[in-house]
Design a protein around this nucleic acid. Structure first.
Length: 651
RNA sequence: GCCUUUGUAGCUCAGGGGUAGAGCACUUCCUUGGUAAGGAAGAGGUCAGGGGUUCAAAUCCCCUCAAAGGCUCCA
């Protein structure tokens, strides 16, 4: 044990060092190396992030946080929000402040600008001010304050939003932070000083309700991002530009995959021939794998009587936010566009008595559903009002849940692999253990299902995070996330256990003891929806789809009109081996034909001229790579099919 | 749904109270060419829609619709 003036500090590598009581993270860093000390942004003390300059008074486990730690970054950005606030106060006297947290990539501050408004043109001015203030190398100084003093301070300043925040705080836990001439109500922690901030960019400005409540006043939310090095800002900007180039809305138009029409309506995508073919190919790919995995295809109508959704509970929960019921002309009947496929599938389950021997029953449908999403929510293909789920419902016995989960995981991973998503993870969403009564279903069933999900994920080696309280009220779930080529995360497929619908539809099966039992239902969709999945696929591949999905796989480019017949002959021969594409018969030079094929992202160009026609060969050019040399038509077909075989294994 | 911004040719965009512009794409003609843009001519728009102000509106004002970025929502 240490004497009263010293404390023991445990470092992440497990080593224990002795420091004087009141040593700060910076002191500890300095004792390790000066270089480290220069980079320390904050200190994690017993799992809590502290200012690097805050004295540590007792034994602790610590970790020194730098730019390389997520928590280091978020501290850096939170401090940058204060710097932004200081700049705004200098530029717009009288501005009132809401809250200014760090976010995944940067930070924002919600402000009430009063008379002023901010637009893009003002960004450089704000950025310059921030950097000017940063160069003053001001320290972030932490100061605990009593509630009454805090109220006096912000009353005097006229910051009503801060006063509202203080109102919800407990006396004794309130701190202020000051850097330069700006003082903010803040829990912290912060980086030691503004000198760390070397590059700043205001990225966006938008409206946001005070405290995220629609009833409250709309404040101006100013988004920004900062870096400790100019170079990192440049990389960030490059990444943003790359993301813009990959935007599926832009590529969808350029590659003629889909379109929207005001006449048809908001959020209702029109699939153009190339997009439709891409989509059909994805569907048949999954259909084939599902058939092998024991799914049975079903088809159900796009509408269902209102009673169906009263039974399912959807009417009660979402009815007033849905497309409203359709009335029949004569009888007093109401039908609804289907927002989910599961009620229909439950009715299919009920078409005959089921025995425990029939289970699991796996019903699959590419089912198109309609949901009236808020207009401000619509976004390209990722959020639409009419979309097709690669849906299936597995009706099984409680003891089969785990096995079925494993099978679905295998199917989902097969889909990811075949489509080039190699960086994926999953989230297990379980009940809130504190609040079990808000969930439907028997306690023991939940336990069993949650256990089944956890075990199935572990058995398949999924990298998972577990979130308590994130389960749906009707059952726990497993959601898949993929990281795309730019490092962005997307939520894709989902597997959900459902105890509610079997109960609401009174589904039963006869057990081996001739008693009636209730099946468990599992909803699952590896793609999620065709629309959303294709959007993500477009962004991940930048429109350069895997060969087997590419709308046009080859472009045959005759050198001149003289070889048009030979070009057609090549085309027909290749078409016989299921290779699709076109012959570019335009009256253009070869350079132009190549350029156009490159721009429209055709994977293979086959150039045919005098030499090729004479020898029965093609000159092969791969998009983005260039000339691969000459092959016979048969050689090319084999080469081509081999490439596809290597991407897409059979399930 | 709310806030802010935007809407001009198929696409990308300039212009802006006084007869609508460019590049690309498209059509026709010339050119018959060897690995990322050959040449010429032509056609194409009720300036998102509706209303108002004005001698005159694509331009200014109002409303509607749609899009973008946020916020709230998401079976």
């Amino acid at each position: 044990m240490n004497d009263s003036s010293n404390i023991n500090i445990t470092l992440p590598d497990g080593s224990v060092r002795e420091y004087p009581k009141g040593a700060t993270g910076l002191d500890i860093a300095l004792s390790i190396s000066e270089g480290l000390a220069r980079n320390v942004l904050a200190t994690k003390v017993n799992g809590e992030v502290w200012d690097a300059t805050r004295p540590i008074e007792s034994d602790a486990e610590i970790k020194l946080l730098t730019w390389n730690d997520d928590e280091g970054k978020s501290t850096f950005w939170h401090s940058s929000a204060h710097l932004l606030a200081e700049a705004l106060e200098a530029l717009y006297p009288g501005v009132k402040f809401g809250t200014g947290p760090s976010i995944e990539k940067g930070f924002y501050y919600d402000v009430d600008l009063g008379e002023h408004s901010i637009s893009q043109e003002d960004f450089p001015k704000i950025e310059a001010k921030m950097l000017e203030l940063a160069r003053q190398k001001n320290e972030y100084i932490r100061k605990p304050i009593s509630k009454s003093d805090a109220i006096n301070f912000f009353t005097e300043k006229g910051d009503e939003y801060k006063l509202e925040l203080i109102d919800g705080l407990e006396d004794g836990s309130i701190t202020l932070y000051t850097q330069g001439s700006f003082t903010d109500l803040c829990r912290g922690p912060h980086i030691p000083g503004t000198s760390f901030i070397k590059a700043a960019k205001i990225t966006n400005v938008a409206g946001a309700y005070w405290r995220n409540n629609q009833e409250n006043k709309m404040l101006t939310r100013i988004y920004g991002v900062t870096f400790p090095k100019q170079k990192e800002l440049e990389e960030y900007i490059t990444l943003i530009e790359e993301a813009k180039k990959r935007d599926h809305r832009r590529l969808g138009k350029e590659l003629e995959l889909f379109a929207f029409s005001e006449k048809v309506g908001q959020g209702l995508p029109l699939w153009l021939p190339k997009g439709a073919m891409l989509r059909e190919r994805l569907e048949s790919f999954l259909r084939k794998a599902q058939l092998r995995a024991g799914y049975l295809p079903v088809v159900t109508p796009h509408i269902g009587s209102k009673a169906l959704y009263e039974t399912s509970g959807h009417w009660e929960k979402y009815g007033k936010d849905s497309f409203q019921p359709i009335r029949t002309p004569d009888a007093d009947e109401e039908y609804m566009l289907k927002p989910m496929n599961c009620p229909h599938h439950c009715e299919i389950y009920k078409t005959k008595p089921r025995s425990y021997r029939d289970l699991p029953l796996r019903l699959a449908e590419f089912g198109t559903v309609y949901r009236y999403e808020q207009s401000g929510e619509l976004h390209g293909l990722t959020r639409v009002r009419g979309f097709t789920q690669d849906d299936a419902h597995i009706f099984c016995r409680p003891d089969q849940v785990k096995e079925e989960f494993i099978r679905v995981i295998d199917l989902v991973l097969y889909v990811f692999r075949s489509l080039g998503f190699n960086d994926y993870s999953a989230q297990i969403s379980l009940r809130d253990p504190e609040n079990k009564q808000k969930y439907i279903g028997k306690d023991e069933d939940w336990d069993k299902a949650e256990q089944a999900i956890i075990e199935a994920s572990a058995e398949r080696g999924l990298s998972t995070v577990t979130e308590l309280g994130e389960a749906a009220f009707y059952g726990p779930k497993l959601d898949f996330m993929v990281r795309d080529a730019l490092g962005r995360k997307w939520q894709l497929g989902t597997i959900q256990v459902d105890y509610q619908l079997p109960q609401r539809f009174n589904l039963e099966y006869v057990g081996s003891d001739n008693q009636k039992y209730r099946p468990v239902m599992i909803h699952r969709a590896p793609f999620g929806s065709m629309e959303r999945f294709i959007a993500i696929l477009i962004e991940n591949t930048a429109g350069q789809f895997p060969l087997w999905l590419s709308p046009d796989q080859i472009a045959i480019l005759p050198i001149s009109e003289k070889y048009a017949d030979y070009a057609d002959e090549v085309f027909f021969q290749l078409q016989d081996t299921d290779i699709r594409g076109f012959v570019d018969h335009r009256d253009e030079k070869i350079g132009r034909k190549i350029r156009d094929a490159e721009v429209t992202k055709v994977p293979y160009m086959l150039i045919v001229g005098e030499k090729e026609a004479a020898e029965g060969r093609v000159s092969v050019r791969r998009k983005g790579e260039g000339d691969l040399g000459s092959m016979t038509i048969g050689e090319f077909a084999a080469y081509f099919q081999n490439e596809i075989k290597n991407i897409i294994a059979t399930f």
